[in-house]
Simulated scan of single mutants.
Amino acid sequence: MDIRQPNELHWFKSTYSGGDGGECVEIAPDSTVIHVRDSKERGGPQLAFPRSAWSGFLADLGRGRI
Rank of each mutant, 00 (worst) to 15 (best):
P45V: 06
S14K: 09
M1T: 09
I34P: 09
F57C: 02
K13T: 07
P29M: 02
E8M: 12
S17R: 06
L58W: 01
K13M: 11
G62M: 07
S52I: 10
F57E: 08
F12C: 02
A59Y: 13
S17F: 08
A53Q: 10
N7K: 08
P45Q: 00
G62D: 08
H35Q: 01
A59G: 14
E41P: 05
A59K: 10
R63L: 11
I34K: 00
R65N: 08
E8G: 09
N7C: 11
T32L: 10
P6Q: 14
D20A: 09
Q5M: 06
D20K: 07
T15K: 05
L58P: 00
F12V: 10
V25S: 01
A59N: 11
G43A: 00
F12Y: 13
D2C: 13
G22K: 00
S17C: 13
I3R: 11
W11R: 10
R42F: 08
I66N: 15
E23N: 15
S14C: 13
A48N: 03
G43K: 03
P45I: 00
W54S: 00
D2F: 15
F57T: 03
G43R: 03
E41V: 13
A59D: 15
D30E: 14
W11D: 13
G62I: 07
T15G: 14
I66F: 12
T32V: 03
F57P: 09
E26Y: 03
R65E: 05
C24L: 04
D38G: 04
I27N: 10
S52A: 12
L58N: 10
R4Y: 15
T32F: 07
A59I: 09
S52W: 09
I66Y: 09
L47S: 03
L47Y: 09
E8Q: 15
W54L: 03
S14N: 04
G56Q: 08
Q5C: 07
Y16M: 14
H10N: 14
S52G: 12
S14Y: 05
I3G: 12
W54H: 03
A28R: 06
L47W: 00
G44P: 06
Q46C: 12
G18H: 15
R65W: 04
F12S: 14
D30F: 13
K40A: 05
Q46E: 13
H10R: 14
C24A: 13
G19M: 06
V36W: 09
D30K: 12
D20Y: 07
T15F: 11
W54M: 05
D2H: 15
A28C: 08
Q5D: 11
Y16F: 05
D30L: 12
E41K: 13
I34F: 04
R63F: 06
H35W: 04
H35M: 06
R42L: 14
A28H: 10
E26N: 03
V25R: 03
W11G: 13
S14Q: 10
L61D: 04
L61M: 05
I34M: 07
